[in-house]
Design a binder for these strands. Structure first.
Ligand SMILES: NC(=O)c1ccc[n+]([C@@H]2O[C@H](COP(=O)([O-])OP(=O)(O)OC[C@H]3O[C@@H](n4cnc5c(N)ncnc54)[C@H](O)[C@@H]3O)[C@@H](O)[C@H]2O)c1
Ligand SMILES: NC(=O)c1ccc[n+]([C@@H]2O[C@H](COP(=O)([O-])OP(=O)(O)OC[C@H]3O[C@@H](n4cnc5c(N)ncnc54)[C@H](O)[C@@H]3O)[C@@H](O)[C@H]2O)c1
Lengths: 228, 228
DNA sequence: GTCAGGTCGTGCACGTGTTCACAATCAAGT
DNA sequence: ACTTGATTGTGAACACGTGCACGACCTGAC
């Protein structure tokens, strides 16, 4: 109720979902309270960071005891906007788009796959995971009818910017891009990307460093962070 | 030849593949030289950052002119370890694992899919994209024979840590994890993760902030960075 | 009521990453 | 040779993120 002066750092926002996953697991195990130390271990970060991150949500812990799992779960869900469902549209129903459409994990976490669209006439009309593929030209209607705010781009790279523009024009202001292409969106929209080739290249960089060890100092470990 | 005192920052390493992709495009367009300004635009970053990032590779630019595309391409490929192929093993040939196995983009970028393994006896023996699925118990032999240094985990979350341990035991020291689970690896290995549910939750956080605009100050834009 | 043990919340110092600004340098034209 | 215009490479300031250390506070035992 009382408005604290909160502006959650981006790095913290990126970690909240990881804490959330840990908390869901704890809730399933009927754990009542959890210490920052143990939560840190589950999330793969350090305890001070957990406490600082959680402090941005509010003072929900109890000194000497820890955090109430259920209560923290509720507050975190609320903060992340997970008290409501966020219908998602997948654009580009090829190899990757179909795999995503078939994945039940999105729906179960509050991101139901509301629509599938493609530009290829031979794909339109087909059913994938019980959903009919519709033409991308129908995007404005689909987005409006189903209140879609999030779009996933799974088209070839050369189509990605055009698809992004169409999504934005249809009122979709959160975009997750799978295509290996840089796309531009206005500051009023959010964009995140998943580029597997980039990930592999980062791995190969450090792998090569390790292979060439002995040339001088030891190579540092990258230890997954950026890739969340 | 001359060894400069280089230790490339992690943030820079994560951007090099993006520059590389831009350079490949330019090379295809027969562009001779490129300025940091234009490369920055293509990569979606700021020009000063491009220059600083490239300076870690060496002084490969020419003042008043820019960077020679071919030469920079070569130097960057060498730095990222892309002058050789890096055979990859995919563990968990389900929905996602099959989509990855069918993707030609990995092989074309120097990451040939060398092996597919699964624990499910009913999947072993089947062919996916012309490759026979083998049992995960064979990992040590497979990794050694095919000189595999990179593994992709596409199993359910509960199996991820065990699979990671098996990969490490088989000598695979670079891991890309798709499963929504925190896994631990020794400092002598590299780990990167791709967690789509986390990405969607980050998007929903900022989406909610925008939806609730007017409660106070305007929400900041996340602008894809962490997710690369 | 007091003490002991435990854990949170956070100030502070440190390290990393980003951006600005500008001298250094190059090519080309005259 | 000199000037002009362009662009790099980098020092320095700044912003952001991390981790330590410790006071504040809670619970339970006696
Ligand atoms: N499949 C993978 O494992 C994988 C891995 C890494 C990256 N990617 C990337 O993900 C994207 C999709 O990969 P894929 O394997 O599914 O490709 P795909 O070729 O199998 O599917 C692409 C789909 O996009 C559709 N499409 C093309 N242009 C379109 C447009 N303008 N509007 C709407 N739809 C359009 C096509 O009809 C097709 O159905 C690609 O950019 C690829 O590089 C895929
Ligand atoms: N499919 C998607 O679009 C998607 C999206 C986001 C995240 N993910 C994640 O990626 C992972 C794979 O997803 P999926 O849809 O392919 O799941 P899936 O159930 O279709 O496939 C999992 C495969 O892993 C195999 N497996 C199970 N335990 C194993 C073990 N110990 N060793 C080797 N193989 C084992 C199974 O036999 C199965 O073939 C999951 O963790 C999932 O949460 C998938």
């Amino acid at each position: 109720m009382a408005d604290r002066p909160r502006r959650i750092p981006e790095a913290t926002v990126a970690r909240l979902p990881v804490y959330l996953r840990s908390l869901l697991q704890l809730a399933g195990e009927k754990t009542g309270t959890i210490s920052s130390e143990r939560l840190a271990e589950m999330a793969g970060v350090n305890a001070a960071k957990v406490r600082k991150d959680l402090s941005y949500l509010g003072s929900y812990g109890t000194r000497g005891v820890g955090y109430d799992v259920e209560y923290l779960l509720f507050q975190m869900s609320r903060e992340l906007g997970l008290t409501q469902d966020w219908p998602v549209v997948i654009v580009g129903i090829g190899n990757m788009g179909q795999a995503l459409a078939n994945y039940p994990g999105f729906t179960s976490r509050g991101f139901p796959i509301a629509a599938l669209v493609d530009a290829d006439a031979s794909k339109v009309g087909h059913e994938v995971h019980g959903k009919r593929v519709r033409h991308i030209d129908e995007l404005p209607d689909i987005a409006a009818e189903q209140h879609i705010a999030i779009g996933i781009i799974a088209t070839p790279a050369h189509a990605a910017q055009d698809v992004a523009d169409r999504l934005l024009a249809a009122g979709v202001t959160s975009i997750l891009n799978f295509a290996p292409a840089v796309i531009n969106v206005p500051a009023t929209a959010s964009l995140r990307k998943v580029d597997l080739a980039v990930e592999l290249q980062i791995l190969s960089f450090y792998q090569q460093q390790r292979d060439n060890e002995g040339d001088g100092a030891a190579a540092p470990a990258p230890s997954a962070d950026a890739a969340g």
